[in-house]
Amino acid sequence: MRLVTHNLLQCHVKGCDTNNFPLELSEIECESQETDFNPQFLRTMVPKLEWDALVRTAMKLGITTLPDKVPDTPIQELDEKFLRNLHTVLFETHIQQGKMTCPNCQHVYPIKDGIPNMLLNDNEV
């Protein structure tokens, strides 16, 4: 699972609907995998991101290259350096193993072989 996907996952245990994002990462094993850089696609992605959550999560993985805020320029004028860096963080950082814990209800979603398990127990749906 890449960080882009982590950026949109929230806890969906029944009744857990506040403070349920972002899921906190722990015991993480990461891998870096190169993939094609597509600036136009990234530009469409930027407004859809939860930026604060992304910065915090990246920090947790030791990635400190993201600015605190999205640059205050029109989307089409975001520069290549910013986009390339974002590309690396979002699309080339793969979480292979680990856990995601809900900050509210503490439900743990395991990540195994790169696939997060979002299934819940019967009493949680």
């Binding site: 949109l8 972002p22 859809k48 299934l119």
Partner: peptide, 16 residues
């Protein structure tokens, strides 16, 4: 990316 999930339960795992 792949997610293991049960779509029939109408999961609300998407933030946006």
């Amino acid at each position: 990316d792949f997610l293991l999930t049960d779509l029939t339960l109408d999961p609300k795992w998407q933030k946006n």
